[in-house]
Every structure is written in C-alpha cells, then in structure tokens.
C-alpha cells in the first residue's frame, strides 16, 4: 500500500537487491523450502549413487527372488530394500531408474516448452497486430486438443521413445507459456523502459532479448518448477497406459501397471514405487509452491 511505500527509506533489509534475489531469499526463509530442497537433494544423491551401492539389478529377471516384500516386512531380505516385483527385479533400483528417466524427461521438456513458448509469446505480444492474432489463434488450436488425446493419438500410433514423448509434452505444453509470456509482454511493452530503449535507438530484437526477456522470464521460470512435476506425472500416466518408454527400461507407469494384477498378494509392487514418486514430486511441488508464493508476495510489494 501507498502508506508503506511513502515512508522514507523503509528499514526492510531487502533493499538493494534485485527482484529475483528477493524472491529467492524470501522463499529460502521458509522452512518448507529448506525441507523440500533437502529431500530433493537426498533423492538426487540416491538416484546417482544407488546403482553402484546396491547389489541388485533393475532389469535382470530372477524368478527365485520374485514377490519379495520390502525389508521392513516379514519375509523381506537385503539387498532388496523395497522388495522385488513379479519377475524378481529389485523395486528400489527400478524406481530410481524410473525416477531418473522421468526427471530427465520432465526437465528437458519443460526447458524446451519454456524456451519455445516464451519466445513465441514475447514475439507475439511485442509485435501485436496480425502476428499476434495468428500466433494466438495457433495457441488456441493447440490448447483445444487435450494433452491426453494428443498423446494417445501420437504415441499410441507410433512406437514411443523418449524423443517422441518429449516432443508430445512440448507440443502440448508450449501454448500456456506463450500465453503467459504474451500477456506479461503486453503490459511490459507499455512500460517506460521499453519506450526509453526505443528512443536510444535499440532495435526490436534487442529490446525483446535484452530488455523484456530478462525482466519477465525469471518469475515465469520459478513456476516452471511445478511443471517439471506435472510432466513427470504425465510420463507416469503414459507408461501406465502403455504409451510411455517401452520395457524393459523401467518407468513408474510400467512398474505400477505391472503390479496391478498382483495387488492383493503383493501390493508393494504398486504402492511403494508410487510413494517414492510422490515423495520426489512432493519436494518439487513444495519448492515450486513456495517460490510461487514468494513471487506473488514480492511482486505485490508486500515483502
């Protein structure tokens, strides 16, 4: 509110920092952020080191060891911490590999859709006129094909592999980024600094790349963390329906769907990897949520 901003030299410690630094700082101050990032780091480490430390295989079939429950249950034994599946493969390792694959697919596809979407959005918003109308109608078209329909059409018809999966995710994800980037650019274009840049002779490209992009992208990027989690969920769903990465490479979707038949006798095949996935997604989402909240607070001037 004006009353606070009119107080001279407010004692807020955040003075002298750029907006982005303030957002990160504010986010880091919350305990949720610390817990979530620690959890996330731990999972990363586990994923990286797990295959070397655990003496078991994610893909080798060993009938003798099938349907072993997790170690904390009766009948479970090491090295199978989380038990084994119907073919005697180690569930923890399978989950970790699945996690890594899902995470890679999530990060790559979000990065691509972020770049593509924001570039189109900034261009569209800055140019305005017919360019804008045409580009926005294209996003309309793209957005009116539900992701799942697009995915099952493309992936169900062709043989899915990581590239086509990323392609489908990017294809269905970019319009949202384009929309957001465009609407911020529209507001940004009116601002004095853009006019100031044009007056000193800066070209349109320069203004878009050097002036508009750096000021609008970070806030969008903070929220993109949430999308990584969303994409990982899509990857799991694809796997479950059978249009994700194909076996024998383990993915969450295939592990879960493979286990459904044995739900009553060996529930852990389905439930346990899901918990691991939920845990990692939870940490990502919590980080994203805190970042989003801090961003809103900072942009509204409340902090």
């Amino acid at each position: 509110m004006t009353i606070l901003s009119s107080i001279p030299q407010s004692s807020a410690p955040a003075r002298g920092q750029s907006v982005n630094a303030r957002i990160l700082r504010l986010a880091w101050r919350s305990s949720e952020m610390k817990v979530a990032s620690l959890l996330f780091l731990a999972l990363c480490l586990l994923t990286l080191l797990g295959p070397f430390v655990i003496d078991a295989s994610a893909t080798k079939i060993s009938v003798a060891d099938k349907f072993l429950p997790p170690v904390f249950m009766e009948g479970g034994r090491l090295p199978y911490f989380l038990g084994t599946d119907q073919l005697g493969r180690d569930l923890l390792l399978r989950s970790l590999v699945g996690l890594r694959n899902a995470f890679l697919i999530g990060v790559v596809s979000v990065m691509l859709m972020f770049v593509l979407g924001c570039a189109i959005g900034i261009f569209s918003g800055y140019r305005g006129g017919w360019t804008d109308v045409v580009l926005m109608r294209i996003t309309d078209i793209q957005m009116s094909i539900p992701v799942i329909i697009l995915a099952i059409t493309i992936l169900g018809m062709s043989r899915p592999n990581p590239f086509t999966i990323v392609a489908v995710l990017v294809l269905s994800g970019w319009p949202i980024y384009a929309r957001v980037a465009r609407s911020v650019t529209l507001a940004e274009r009116q601002k004095e600094y853009v006019r100031a840049a044009r007056i000193i002779g800066a070209s349109d490209l320069r203004i878009m790349v050097r002036h508009i992009a750096p000021s609008i992208l970070p806030p969008i990027a903070f929220v993109a963390v949430l999308d990584v989690a969303r994409m990982m969920i899509f990857e799991a769903i694809f796997g479950f329906i059978g249009i994700g990465i194909q076996p024998p490479t383990p993915t969450f979707g295939t592990i879960i769907s493979g286990g459904t038949q044995y739900l009553l006798n060996a529930w852990w095949i389905t439930i346990v990897p899901g918990c691991l996935l939920a845990l990692s997604l939870g940490s990502l989402n919590l980080m994203g949520g805190v970042l989003e909240r801090s961003r809103n607070l900072v942009l509204q001037g409340a902090a």
């Binding site: 769907s257 459904t260 996935l277 939920a278 989402n285």
Partner: peptide, 15 residues
C-alpha cells in the same frame, strides 16, 4: 495442494 498435485492419478486410483 503440494501433496495432492504430487500424486499421479493412476497411482491414486490403484491405491
């Protein structure tokens, strides 16, 4: 919301 959004619907369904 952070918790719910982290649950893949296929998994929730099966659980």
């Amino acid at each position: 919301s952070s918790f719910f959004v982290s649950l893949p619907n296929v998994w929730v369904g099966i659980v």
